[in-house]
Write a protein that binds this DNA or RNA. Sequence first.
RNA 1: GGUGGGGUGGCCGAGUGGUGAGGCAGCGGCCUGCAAAGCCGUUAACGCGGGUUCGAUUCCCGUCCCCACCUCCA
Length: 480
Amino acid sequence: MTLRLYDTRTAQVHDFQPLEPGKVSLYYCGATVQGNPHVGHVRSAVAFDILIRWLEASGYEVLSVRNVTDIDDKILEKSAASYAPDFQADSDYPAHEPWFALAYRFEQAFHNAYDALGVRRPSHEPRATGHITEMHTLIQRLVESGHAYPSTDGSGDVYFDVRSWAAYGELTRQNLDEMQDAPDADPRGKRDPRDFALWKGHKPGEPETAAWESPWGRGRPGWHLECSAMATKYLGETFDIHGGGLDLRFPHHENELAQSAAAGHGFARFWLHNGMVTFDGEKMSKSLGNTVSPEEMLAAARPKAVRYFLGQAHYRSQLVYKPGSLQEAEAALERIEHFLDRALPHGAEGRRARVPSAFRDAMDDDLNVPAALAVLHETVRSGNTALDRGDASAAQGLASETAAMLQILGISEVPEPQVAGGPGETALAQLVESMLSSRAEAKAAKDFAQADAIRDQLASAGVHIEDTPQGTQWSVKSGG
RNA sequence: GGUGGGGUGGCCGAGUGGUGAGGCAGCGGCCUGCAAAGCCGUUAACGCGGGUUCGAUUCCCGUCCCCACCUCCA
């Protein structure tokens, strides 16, 4: 079975064959760094992280690019607001912050969130502001071929002429004449209200640092152009996969496709879009105020459990978050980890096991992670059964497979929170061990009341114990 | 109004023209001094109304509802 992927443009699942045998070029949209990340951003990154890992596990060499949009209206607005006399600074937005400092600060916040959840860095992570000349080349080409024009109102804007490009709307199968007009449609110097800015003329009051010289006057890039320019620069005029959140299909990806295709580029061969994260059925977004940040999730559960949760639904499905979701993920994950601890007490290092063919088939089927997880859990059950009948060698084989599956899903590489290995921990271990030996004595003397009292005492302190044939194991439980 | 995606057991969430994933939760059993963990068994679903079919949750028609996008958005 070969990998099959759902392509938004054709609205069908197709066999995936890369442009160049053995290699995959992938571009996926990162963040506009104007605020702190929420879990929706991270879900998208996790989805594409899993795709990349699966491509690599399938033998492909993957060249991945994820952009950073470090200039846009909101970044400039927020920076400008921080200089206002009545500005109320808070922990997210300090006073007097230049736009580039604000953008860089949030870029780092995104990195922290990605890192905490085991999302690997892409091969390249270009910033919009670093590719002004590439954008100029693209605009020039579009102007010369009659698909773009400078605004007629003297603003210095340059627009893409959607009516000049017959295929406009092909990605989302929309007809220009059927589209609902934006409520605040401002025709400015546009030929059609749907024309979008490739270049935005510098406006009085905007910082000089946010403007670049161009053949059409000083200004800054429009939103969609950067992705076309950077994808082409790093991956070529035609590349394999372009990804992003479902909400980027229109207008962002539609516009990218139009401008690149109009420039004569083949552009992306597959378009992949991940579903939204919802809270009680509503899309998480800042404007609705129903966002949950990665920090909040990481405070509520272990990073691996958060990663498990974010990756467990099919990438195209909406992911429903509700209170308790993380605890369920934690319980499922602990079941898996407990088996690994039992079967491979010394770790899963060494040979890299193959994954079960059912797992492979599930992943090849448009990354059907829920089905793949079913295989994983069935493997765990088989392994536990093997352990119960004393077949350590079978159990080890199944444990290695389990570890390989966790690796592909990116769960095993999620960094665990730092447990200070300092004196505090040593002291705790000594105290617990001492209590456990008292309990063992009580048990030996058949004084079960005393033994249970010790167990309860430990439990109330968050120390969970388990009697096994190898002796009593203990661990500190986080959360509840 | 246009476009796309959905409505599956208590919850999450795959999938399929017929033997009905998986997880979480529940129940019964084994194990255990009792637990925990594990194993075995088990309860329970396919929005509604028609149609096609030997048989539909799966296909077709209608209908209701939900979500996303059409404005910045992962």
